[in-house]
Each structure stands twice: as C-alpha cells, then as structure tokens.
Amino acid sequence: MIAAALIATAPAASAAAPARSDGHRVTLMVHGFDREADTNCASSWKDAKNLLNANGWGDVVTFGYYNKATNCDLRLQGTTDTRIQEVGRQFAWTVYYLYSSHDVAVDVVTHSMGGLVAKAAIEGVNRYGVGKTPPDLSGLTVDKNNIGATVWPIAWPPYLYIEDMVTLATPHQGIGSALVTACALTHEQCSDMRPGSGFISWLGKQPLSQMGTDYTFLASSHDDTVSADSATNKRTAHHWALYDKNADGGTLSHTAMRTTSTGAWQASWGGQLSDEGSGSYPAPLLRMMDGLYDQQAQ
C-alpha cells in the first residue's frame, strides 16, 4: 500500500467524504515522546501490530517523527524540539498526500504524545486548511524515510479523512509532573505538554476530520506518567475506559497500555456515545480493536 502510494500522482479534490466502513481500514500508528529521540517503531508497536494483523488488519503503518527513530514505515526527520503542532502538520500532509487526497480513509492508533500529534493534524486542518483550494502535489516524490525533507506547502491540507482514533495513555490535558516541568527547560515537546500551555489551549478536545472521527481514549488509574483525568480528557471522549487492576492484582503502567492484550481487567467506562459502567473489561489492545471497528461517527 505504501510503496504504491509513494509514486508521485496528482491528488484530486474529493467531491464527498468516504462513507464509514466500520471495518479494517488502513491503520497508522503514532508513537509517544522519547527523550533520546531514538524510538524503534517496530518494537514499540510489535504487540499492537501483531494483534491487528492476526485479526484481519492487513495495512498497519508506523509513523515516526524523530531523526534517530528506526524501523518506521514513515519517518519525519524531527527532534524533541520540533513543536507538536509542527509534527501534527507534517503528519497531516503525510496522511493527505498518501490517503485522503486519493479518497482513502484511515484509522489512527496512538500512544502518549502521539495522540496529541494526531489530534493536532485534524485541528490544524480544521482551523487553517478547510475551504482552501487543494494544492497540486503532482511534482512531489516522497521519501518514506525522510518525510521532513519533503517540501510540503507552508499551510495545511484542505481536508483529512480519519475515521477512528484510539489513544493509549495520551495526555490530552497535559502532564503536570515535576519531571515534565524539568524536561520543558530543554525539550520543546515537553514544554508543549505542560497543562495550560499554548499548544494544549489551542488543541481541541476531539477535533473531527472531514468525514467525522470517532474517538476512544484508554487510560490506566495506575499510569505513572499521565493522570486519569488527562488520559480520558476528564471523561469527555466519545468512548473512554479507565483501567484498574487485573485478577491477580496487577496494574497497567504508562508503557503497558501500549503492549497489553491479555488478562482479566477491572475498569470503568463511558463516553458521549457509550453507556457507562464498571466491572470486567477487555485488555487495552483488545479494546483498541473495538475502537477501530463498528463505532458510531459523530
């Protein structure tokens, strides 16, 4: 899918957004903040990607945004000082060029800061791109390992088609820990993730792409990095779940939210488009699959 899409072709403006498929879309996976900026996309997403592939998702594409990142299907040459909004703009153009401009809708799965990147892509398009004339990108040839070297237009794409988004332990309202406050002194992305930052204030709660976007926010009450309120956006998502302990008393750390597909878990859940409840609940990666399938757009 990627190899074919990387051939330079002129994207045509879409007359109408694709219909919801409630099925196995192309799924892009966006990692979180890495202070060393050397994320290995293959190992980071191994568990989630293997689960999706084993259950009928054939096109699962990893997106990295650090110049030292490895084994990413698509990679932006950024650093920890590349502002999250700019990473979102690069992600928006990548999705637009490869998929939306060809009337292909995608789903997105993110971990931690990756959810802010993906939401920023939609928010930026909604604020600055909608209504603009689709650009002629027919002369571009995209290097999948060096997305940042591509001379995208300065502005934002005119539309995006992102059907479902699942965020795992994303700080939708920022991270107020002393660790992030210290990190903000030397890394701009940490500065963006502080509660009440200009970026967090700019970012919408659940910005909708031009086909509507269904959100599922998954959080752990034992996350050592992101609070429950931040990871569920104070329980304002279309669908949210807050994990507690499993049958053996085990808990889910920040990283484990991205890797856990087994276990009998206790959780509370709800959302704008979901019934509220508490009790036994599927492991995070199993719930991730639910979030990519058979949901209702708003």
Rank of each mutant, 00 (worst) to 15 (best):
E123F: 01
E123W: 03
G124R: 04
R127E: 15
Y128F: 08
G129Y: 01
G129C: 06
V130W: 02
V130C: 09
G131C: 07
G131N: 06
K132F: 00
P134Y: 09
P134W: 12
P135A: 12
L137I: 13
S138I: 00
D143R: 12
D143I: 06
A149E: 15
V151R: 09
W152L: 07
I154S: 15
A155V: 10
P157Y: 05
Y159C: 05
Y159S: 10
E163P: 00
M165N: 02
T167M: 14
A169M: 01
T170W: 12
P171C: 13
P171K: 12
Q173E: 15
Q173R: 13
G174P: 04
G176M: 09
A178K: 03
L179I: 14
V180M: 11
T181A: 15
C183Q: 05
C183Y: 06
A184V: 10
L185A: 12
L185F: 11
E188F: 09
E188L: 14
Q189N: 09
D192A: 01
M193T: 05
R194F: 08
S197C: 15
G198Y: 09
F199H: 06
I200F: 11
S201E: 13
W202V: 00
L203G: 01
G204I: 03
K205W: 10
L208V: 04
S209V: 06
S209T: 06
S209Y: 00
S209N: 13
S209P: 01
Q210H: 01
Q210I: 03
D224A: 01
V226T: 14
S227F: 04
A228E: 01
D229V: 07
D229W: 00
S230M: 05
N233K: 10
N233T: 04
K234I: 14
K234F: 00
T236D: 08
A237T: 03
A237P: 01
H238V: 02
L242W: 07
D244C: 03
K245A: 12
K245G: 06
S253V: 00
S253G: 15
H254I: 03
R258H: 08
T259M: 14
S261I: 04
